[in-house]
Write a protein that binds this DNA or RNA. Sequence first.
DNA 1: GCCAACGTTGGC
DNA 2: GCCAACGTTGGC
Length: 165
Amino acid sequence: MLPKWLMKSEPDEFSILDFAARGGEEWGGVRNYQARNFLREMRVGERFFFYHSSCAEPGVVGIGEIARAAAPDPSQFDLSSDYFDPKSTTDQPRWDSVWVRFVTRLYPRAGELADPLQPALTLAQLRAAGPALQGLRLLDRGSRLSVIPVAPEHARWLLEQTRAA
DNA sequence: GCCAACGTTGGC
DNA sequence: GCCAACGTTGGC
């Protein structure tokens, strides 16, 4: 099944290796309305590309699947959380989380990974793809969204350039 | 409703 | 560490 989404994670916080080891995880802490609205569109079973950001080698590293649809993110009510939001109430929560399930790591089509955290496709490679990825929001100038939709033709291209375990 | 100031993201 | 881009806040 073609992934419909791309989700960013900082490998220092939660890498594809952590994801593979844990198998499942709550995806919370999203504090941007546009990204939240995408979370709300996600349906159980839909897949996403897992992307490493804010690191030495940003890029696509794996695939996950939505395991539970969007519901209020508990961390918005948690005083001790970095993601606590004083403007959220249980009556009127502002933020949602989803649950995700690990599907696979992705590897370069040819060759091996020099490093376990090396992406199957680096951001530089994505930028070099030209028309094949035209319109992919990840590549928009100044794009900072941590959750973005991926068009089927873009998803197909990304899968063609990689192989699963 | 405007917009300046500020905070955050994230590549480099 | 720098800085461009963007979102949010809050005074007016």
